[in-house]
Amino acid sequence: MTPDLIYGLTGIAVFAIGLVGALCAQDRLRRVLALKLCSVGAGFLLVVGAWRTPPMAPDPVPHALVITGIVVMVSATAVALALIRRLQTLESSDDDD
C-alpha cells in the first residue's frame, strides 16, 4: 500500500461524502461546507495523481492546478456565503415579497 492509493481512495470518499451533503443538506450553510468537501476531494485526486514514488519529485503542474482550485473555491464560497447572509436578512426583515 502506498500513500497514493490510500489518499486517492480517501479523496474519492471525501468527494462522495461532500456530494451527499451537497445534495441532501437542508441547511444552506452546511451545503456550502459540503461543496467545500467536494473540492477538497477533487484536490486529493489531483495531488495523488501528481505523486511519484519518493525519490522522484512529484509532478508540479497538478499542484499548481489545485492551488488555483482552492482560490477559485474560496471565491465561490465567499459569494455563496454573501448570498446566504443577504437572503437571511431579507427573510428576517419582511415577509411579503
Binding site: 461543496l35 467536494c38 476531494g41 477533487a42 482550485g69 465561490a76 455563496a80
Partner: peptide, 18 residues
Amino acid sequence: LDYMYASILGALLFLMGV
C-alpha cells in the same frame, strides 16, 4: 443562491473529471 449551488457543484464535478 440555488443557481450558485448548482454552479459550484457542476464546476466541482467537472474538476473531479479533470
